[in-house]
C-alpha cells in the first residue's frame, strides 16, 4: 500500500508544481513506483514541467467519471520508467471534483503505486480541500517571506481541521520545504531565516531549495532541474527525495554563500 502526499502552500507561485515534478522524479530514481496527480484543475502545468504536454489524452476527471480507464490515462515519464502522471482537466474547473470519486481514485492509486503525490492548487478553496482530504502526509512549500508563511500557516490549520485522517484522530504528518532561498538576501536580513520559519510553523523541515535561475529553463524544456547535475537546487531536490525514501541525508546549508574551498582556490592559481 502506497503513501499519499499532498503538496500544498496556501500562497500561489511558491513552487508546488516544480517541487512535485522534481520529487516525483527523484523518488522514482530511487527505484520506487510513483504517480503524480495534478489537482490544479483548469490550470494544469505539471505535464508541461515534465515535458508531457502533448501526451495528455485522458485526464483525472475522465477517470473519475469512468470515461477512461486508469491505465489509459496514466502517462509514463520520459525520464523514468516508474514515474507516471495523471493530468488535470484543462476544460473542467475545480468544481468538477466530487469527494467520493476523489476518495475512490486515491484508494486505487495507493494500491498501484508506492508514492502518490498530489499537486494542490493555490489558495485554500475547494480544490485545495479535495487535495488534502485523503492525504496521509502533506509537504508544505514556502518561500522565505511573511506572506507565504502566513498563508502556509492557514493551510496547515485547515489540514488539521478538515482532512480525513485528522477527523479520525490520526496524525497527518507535515513536512516543510523552504524554496527560493537567496543567500545574499538572507545575509542582508531581507529574507526570513529558516529558524524563524520553523518556529512559526512548528513542523518538520524536509529541506531547503536555493533560488536557481536554471529552474525556469528546466521547466520550459520539460526537464526537471533534478536532472541537471550542476544545479544546487537539483541537488537539494535529490537530497529531499532520498529523505522521503527513508535515507538519512545530512542537511546542507544553502543559506550562506558557497565560497570555494581553500584547496579549490589554490588549484585555481595554477590554471
Amino acid at each position: 500500500m502506497g503513501v499519499v502526499f499532498a503538496v500544498i502552500s496556501g500562497k500561489g507561485g511558491v513552487g508546488k508544481t516544480t517541487t512535485t515534478a522534481n520529487l516525483g522524479l527523484g523518488i522514482a530514481q530511487e527505484g520506487k513506483k510513483v504517480v503524480l496527480v495534478d489537482f490544479d484543475l483548469g490550470q494544469r502545468n505539471l505535464d508541461l514541467i515534465l515535458g508531457l504536454e502533448n501526451r495528455v489524452i485522458y485526464d483525472m476527471v475522465h477517470v473519475m467519471d469512468d470515461e477512461a480507464g486508469l491505465k489509459q490515462a496514466l502517462i509514463k515519464s520520459k525520464h523514468a520508467d516508474n514515474l507516471f502522471l495523471l493530468a488535470a482537466s484543462q476544460t473542467k474547473d475545480k468544481t468538477a471534483l466530487v469527494q467520493e470519486k476523489v476518495k475512490k481514485l486515491i484508494a486505487t492509486l495507493k494500491e498501484e503505486f508506492d508514492y502518490v503525490i498530489l499537486d494542490a492548487p493555490a489558495g485554500i478553496e475547494s480544490g485545495f480541500e479535495h487535495t488534502i482530504m485523503f492525504a496521509d502526509a502533506t509537504i508544505v512549500v514556502v518561500n522565505p517571506e511573511v506572506s507565504s508563511i502566513r498563508d502556509a500557516d492557514k493551510a496547515i490549520g485547515i489540514v488539521d481541521a478538515k482532512c480525513e485522517r485528522a477527523k479520525e484522530n490520526k496524525k497527518v504528518q507535515k513536512y516543510l520545504i523552504i524554496n527560493r532561498i537567496n543567500p545574499a538576501m538572507v545575509t542582508s536580513g531581507e529574507m526570513l531565516m529558516s529558524g524563524d520559519i520553523l518556529d512559526i510553523l512548528s513542523i518538520d523541515l524536509l529541506g531547503k531549495i536555493p533560488e536557481d535561475k536554471a529552474i525556469v529553463e528546466a521547466s520550459n524544456t520539460g526537464k526537471p532541474i533534478i536532472l541537471n547535475e550542476k544545479s544546487q537546487a537539483g541537488a537539494a531536490y535529490k537530497r529531499i527525495s532520498k529523505r522521503l525514501c527513508g535515507i538519512d541525508v545530512d542537511f546542507e546549508d544553502v543559506e550562506t554563500f558557497n565560497t570555494p574551498s581553500l584547496m579549490g582556490k589554490i588549484k585555481s592559481l595554477f590554471q
Binding site: R150, D153, K154, I156, G157, I158, D160
Partner: peptide, 8 residues
C-alpha cells in the same frame, strides 16, 4: 495545547 494558526 496546540499552535494557534493564521485564520483561526
Amino acid at each position: 495545547d496546540e499552535i494557534v494558526r493564521s485564520g483561526q
